[in-house]
Design a protein around this nucleic acid. Structure first.
Lengths: 114, 114
DNA sequence: TATTTGCGCAATCAAATAATTGCGTATATA
DNA sequence: TATATACGCAATTATTTGATTGCGCAAATA
């Protein structure tokens, strides 16, 4: 493989939920849109720290900003989380396939199949 | 919040699946255990790069090593992925609660409720 | 109008990531 | 026994991440 030192910016749902604070923010926003200060009040994080996370969540398109006067409300885009669901489904399907094969082997090992 | 510069090591499922190569490795291992070289053959990654990912996956307890002569087979620990499933369930539940409330509001807005 | 409040943006920083190269060691093969 | 193979470990490097401080602007309030 051609050398690819360092990382590439990855802005997807998986990156979004990799951080526990971001997961908590996502959970919080299921109850309704909030401002950065409103979110920060719920955690032991500074407003700036929360803002940084919100920026990443925005880039991952999990939240959307809606300006309201001097306040900015962050709304959840629940659709994006479905991508994780999709991956999980794929995973479980592959796993089931493996156990199907295992079942076949076990079937052949049955005493009455000797 | 007390200053917490830099990051903390986070070794959980969410960190494990944050990287696309690691997600691919997890998928690959659903078909059965493989050695680092065996895994690397499936990707355009070097053996060392794969090994680094396997180390992280081991620390996240998503894979388990089984030495077999000079080869080390990496087995999938599918149970750990259930933590993602659990989080998703929680998320969907919270979301449903929100839509329940929305439904109540819509119900009250119905013309016949005037 | 003056002041407070809400928030983004930039600079800065320590720690972590992703990947590389090189080395050492143990197991298998010629 | 000599050699090749499989792999982990350490050092190195570029880049990202998570968080902080400080600044400035626009909107609300006194």
């Amino acid at each position: 493989m051609i050398a690819n030192r360092g990382m590439k910016i990855r802005r997807d749902v998986f990156q979004a939920i990799a951080d526990p604070t971001r997961r908590a923010i996502i959970m919080l926003l299921t109850a309704g849109a909030l401002t950065p200060n409103g979110i920060a009040e719920h955690f032991e994080s500074s407003r700036q720290a929360v803002s940084k996370h919100l920026q990443i969540l925005s880039e991952c398109e999990i939240v959307q900003q809606v300006q309201q006067g001097r306040e900015i409300f962050y709304h959840l885009n629940a659709e994006k989380v479905k991508e994780v669901e999709k991956w999980l489904e794929q995973f479980k399907q592959l796993l089931a396939k493996r156990f199907d094969q295992l079942d076949q082997v076990l079937e052949q090992l049955k005493p009455n199949n000797k």
